[in-house]
C-alpha cells in the first residue's frame, strides 16, 4: 500500500445540534493522491476537511497526519508548523486587518522563514500571475468573495504545500476568477502534493482524480 499521508481511524463526530456527521469512519489518503470529493451535503464535506487539518477534533477515533495524530492546539503539529498544508476554505480566511500583499507575505515570513524582501517579491509575482496585483494594497473587504477565495488559493500556492484541502465557494464565480483558479489548481494537481478538492463545478480542472462520494457520513470510492 502507498505511503499514507492522512489516516482517519474510526472517526465519529456529531454536530453541535447532536446530528451524526461521521460514525466510525475509516479512510486513508496516500501521499500524492488526488481526490475529488462529492457530497450531497457541502457542510459535511467541509467538516471532513476541518478534521483533516486538525481544526475540528473527532469525539471518538483519531486523525493521523504525516504519521502524527492531530490533537488540540494543532498549530504545534509539525506538518502544520512547517506550512505543509494548503488550506483554501470557501470563505478565504484572509486577515481583514491586513492588505492583500501582507496576507501573502506574512505566512511566508512567519512559517517559511523567508526574508521580507524575498517574500514581497514572491507575493508580487504570484498576485501578478493571478491578475490580482491591482488589489495588492486593498484589504479583503474591498474585494468580492470570488477574488478573496482566489487570493486564498494564491496564498496557499506560495506555501508549496504537501497536502491541499480546497473548498470552493458555493456561489457562482466570475469567469476571470474561474480561469485563474482552474489554472492554479491544475498546476497543484500536477505536483507531487496530495489533494482533496470539494465539489464538481464545471470550471474545475479536468485532471484525473479519484472520485469519492460522501453520503450520510460514509465514503464511497468511485472510478478513477
Amino acid at each position: 500500500m502507498a505511503d499514507p499521508l492522512l489516516v482517519l481511524e474510526s472517526v465519529s463526530l456529531r454536530s453541535e445540534e447532536g446530528r451524526i456527521v461521521f460514525d466510525g469512519l475509516d479512510w486513508t489518503l496516500a501521499r500524492g493522491a488526488k481526490v475529488r470529493l462529492r457530497s450531497s451535503s457541502g457542510r459535511d464535506a467541509s467538516v471532513l476537511l476541518r478534521l483533516a487539518s486538525g481544526l475540528a477534533l473527532p469525539q471518538a477515533g483519531r486523525v493521523v497526519l504525516d504519521g502524527i495524530p492531530l490533537g488540540p492546539y494543532s498549530f504545534d503539529h509539525p506538518f502544520l508548523a512547517r506550512g505543509a498544508l494548503g488550506w483554501v476554505p470557501r470563505e478565504g480566511g484572509l486577515l481583514v486587518n491586513q492588505d492583500l500583499r501582507a496576507n501573502l507575505v506574512l505566512p511566508l515570513m512567519f512559517t517559511k522563514r523567508l526574508g521580507a524582501v524575498q517574500a514581497s517579491s514572491m507575493a508580487a509575482g504570484a498576485l501578478e500571475e493571478a491578475g490580482l496585483s491591482g488589489l495588492a494594497d486593498q484589504r479583503p473587504h474591498a474585494m468580492d468573495p470570488g477574488e478573496r477565495w482566489l487570493a486564498a488559493l494564491v496564498r496557499a500556492t506560495l506555501m508549496v504545500p504537501e497536502l491541499w484541502l480546497v473548498d470552493p465557494p458555493a456561489g457562482h464565480l466570475p469567469r476571470s476568477v474561474q480561469e485563474k483558479a482552474s489554472a492554479l489548481l491544475e498546476r497543484a494537481a500536477a505536483s507531487q502534493a496530495a489533494m482533496i478538492l470539494l465539489g464538481e463545478a464545471s470550471w474545475m480542472p479536468k485532471v484525473p482524480m479519484q472520485a469519492i462520494g460522501l453520503d450520510n457520513g460514509r465514503l464511497m470510492i468511485g472510478d478513477a
Binding site: L55, F75, L80, R82, A84
Partner: peptide, 15 residues
C-alpha cells in the same frame, strides 16, 4: 470569519 483557522492551518501559531 475563519481567519484564526487559516492561521492555524498555515502554521502561524495564533498565540
Amino acid at each position: 470569519s475563519g481567519e484564526v483557522d487559516a492561521l492555524v492551518a498555515m502554521g502561524m501559531n495564533p498565540v
